[in-house]
């Protein structure tokens, strides 16, 4: 936008700084990727990330290392859970957020305070009551306890996030639409949703990542190896009471980053191409 006015050397300096910070930040990740190609006893004794020889053994034994099921099973399960969670969160959290941001109703302040309070209570103390609840519903050892709560907008984080976004949109848009005869449902679907797209994309990315990463609730609610997800599969390589397979664990860790990585690359465009409010403002 203002590159024309800046001198060339300033641009180069900028790039150089960004690259330098990026390399420092990325080094640990490079080390992780490099280590996944090293034999186990090299992982702990080497600090330089580039493997002296490339060894794909970790990937092979990580992928096929489980009798009966390969790592692809865990990836599939994680994908199912994560996608279910993403869909649920995007739909129900944006709905709730719209109500909190734009509609007038009784007990709004109380509802909002309650919503914030659900974020503040640590997970560990509600886990057992939740387990008892889901167990009495017969949902333990299914994906339901991991997906269905997201369809009930239980992630206050995303409601709050989207509320803040919607409140950043000029209200004149709604008013204009009301004059054109639109009700709240149309305003929500035609104006708010497209304009809050960056917030929805953010919700998507975060929900996917956090579900993909989540160890504790998946551990508690899933028992069957066939239903295990990626975080549970990764821990199968580690047993601190005896021997751990660090090599395959690193390899599969790297592999399981790929879906998140691809998702991020695909979706991050929308931060640039997200619909500028200007087009709709007039």
């Amino acid at each position: 936008m203002d590159t024309g006015s800046a001198s060339k050397s300033a641009i180069w300096l900028k790039h150089f700084i960004i690259c330098l910070i990026a390399f420092v930040m990325l080094y640990p990740v490079l080390w992780l990727v490099g280590s996944s190609f090293k034999p186990a006893n090299m992982i702990f004794s080497e600090i330089w990330f580039w493997p002296r020889q490339w060894n794909f053994h970790n990937y092979v034994s990580g992928w096929f290392g489980f009798q009966g099921s390969s790592f692809s099973r865990f990836l599939q399960n994680s994908a199912l859970v994560s996608l279910g969670a993403v869909l649920g969160n995007v739909i129900t959290c944006s709905m709730a957020a719209y109500a909190f941001a734009r509609l007038n109703f009784r007990f709004k302040a109380l509802g909002f305070a309650l919503m914030l309070m659900t974020i503040m209570l640590p997970l560990h103390v509600t886990l057992i009551p939740r387990y008892i609840l889901f167990n009495s519903l017969g949902w333990v050892n299914t994906f339901a306890p991991l997906i269905l709560p997201k369809w009930m907008a239980t992630d206050g984080f995303f409601i709050f996030l989207t509320v803040q976004f919607i409140r950043g949109l000029p209200k004149e848009l709604d008013e204009a639409a009301t004059i054109d005869g639109c009700g709240p449902v149309q305003i929500f679907s035609r104006i708010i949703i497209p304009l809050a797209l960056p917030a929805l994309i953010t919700t998507m990315i975060f929900t996917f990542m956090w579900t993909w990463d989540d160890f504790f609730s998946q551990l508690i609610f899933l028992s069957d190896i066939g239903k295990y997800t990626v975080p549970l599969g990764l821990r199968l390589f580690l047993d601190s009471s005896s021997q751990s397979d660090w090599g395959p664990m690193f390899a599969m860790s790297v592999l399981s980053l790929v879906p998140c990585f691809i998702l991020f690359i695909t979706l991050q465009k929308y931060f640039v191409e997200g619909i500028a409010t200007s087009g709709l403002k007039g």
């Binding site: 886990l127 508690i220 821990r235 047993d239 009471s241």
Partner: peptide, 25 residues
């Protein structure tokens, strides 16, 4: 016999939760 196995991490967290829910193996 339905096996339910894992690494050491979290094993006893899960077990105590299952006991609380009357759903222990």
């Amino acid at each position: 016999i339905k096996p339910e196995y894992s690494g050491w991490d979290g094993y006893f967290d899960k077990l105590s939760t299952q006991v609380a829910g009357s759903n222990a193996p």
